[in-house]
Design a protein around this nucleic acid. Structure first.
Lengths: 200, 200
DNA sequence: TATTTACCTATCCGAAGGGATAGGATCACG
DNA sequence: CGTGATCCTATCCCTTCGGATAGGTAAATA
């Protein structure tokens, strides 16, 4: 079995690579960035499986996966991550990933997961995916979440209103209610809270 | 050599543990949280070295290290981290850590680093420590940095002025210049930029 | 000494944020 | 069918922010 594992932390990457080699993977190549990973696939022709870290130079979340699937549509690619939320996993699978491996997964499961994905089956821990998002965002409604996303991008109420096709007053209402809900003092504080909890 | 490695990501933790075992460590215990690590030290009496992840339930940055050193003053404790900045490493060493291991370190260096620390020598990669903070904050002055810290806490200009013993107008001046310097559209954007770069 | 840099204060202004209150529309659920 | 939740709009009001402009001090430096 021929693998490529890409993670920007040398220690973590090489440790997992060693674990896979010990588990019976014939060839485990490594990369530290998305461009390196792309070059490695180009050079090798293809791998049985490519593991991409969700937080790595060049990835920008799910964008890196999309880029790799666009460049090498037939390549089996999985995402590995320590911080991503269930929604990110679902997005990755929707974008064509063959699997999603949380770093919190037991080490003894990795060999099985990798073998499964290399053979063409989709792998994703059920108990991870079934975690719902709502509780993680303090019970914000869909609109409020959208507005909060705009706040985090540093946009003004007027700009948010334009892009959501709403009146500015409506945005202000959402801002007021959402800051109350999450216990923020103002929009800046709300943005920081959203950040700290990794909502976006 | 008897080690304890604590990291909340099972996969990473066990992979590194396997790497260390392969490197000749007789006994490598593991823990997934700070309380677990404390309990493990309590149960074992002591280890030649304890590796604590900087981002782990119960750690709160450097606080977890301080707690362990307070509970077991004689225990050699090192910090391992994937995201921490040089200043955090210096703080850790000041707080009594026997070393600081960035996860970006080459895997082949870990055995040597661990052996070194277990034998009582302080270990910290020189090229990591020597990275200076100033350039990371876009050339902000001391006052501007203080104001930015206040913004990130969600405080208003008036509140920042009070706690810094300044006039509100002065704070506004600093806000204006610092947002320009870091290329932010407004205070909220500035706070997000500071967060993304891990300035606080 | 002159210049630069960081720092502090002031006034004035328009734009944006934050809050109260009130009302209407839609949809799901009991 | 009523009730509640969510969402949208509206009008007033006051606070805060962001910016322009115009000063001043102190310390380091050329």
């Amino acid at each position: 079995m021929r693998l490529l594992i890409a993670d920007d932390h040398d220690l973590v990457r090489d440790a997992i690579a060693a674990l896979l080699r010990a588990g019976g993977c014939d060839e485990v190549a490594v990369a530290g960035t998305l461009p390196e990973a792309l070059a490695a696939v180009q050079a090798a022709g293809s791998f049985d499986l490519v593991l991409l870290d969700y937080d790595m130079p060049g990835m920008e979340g799910i964008e890196g996966l999309i880029e790799m699937k666009r460049t090498f549509p037939a390549q089996a690619v999985a995402i590995i991550s320590g911080v991503a939320r269930p929604s990110a996993a679902r997005e990755a699978l929707d974008a064509g990933a063959i699997g999603f491996v949380p770093k919190a997964m037991p080490a003894r499961s990795i060999i099985g997961a990798v073998t499964l994905m290399a053979s063409g089956s989709v792998f994703a821990p059920f108990d991870f995916l079934k975690q719902e998002e709502p509780p993680s965002q303090g019970g914000l409604s869909a609109r409020e979440t959208e507005v909060l996303r705009g706040i985090c991008a540093g946009r003004t109420n007027k700009e948010i209103a334009r892009e959501m096709d709403l009146q500015e007053v409506t945005v202000k209402l959402h801002v007021r209610t959402l800051t109350r809900k999450i216990g923020a003092r103002n929009r800046t504080h709300a943005a920081m809270i959203a950040r700290e909890n990794g909502w976006f």
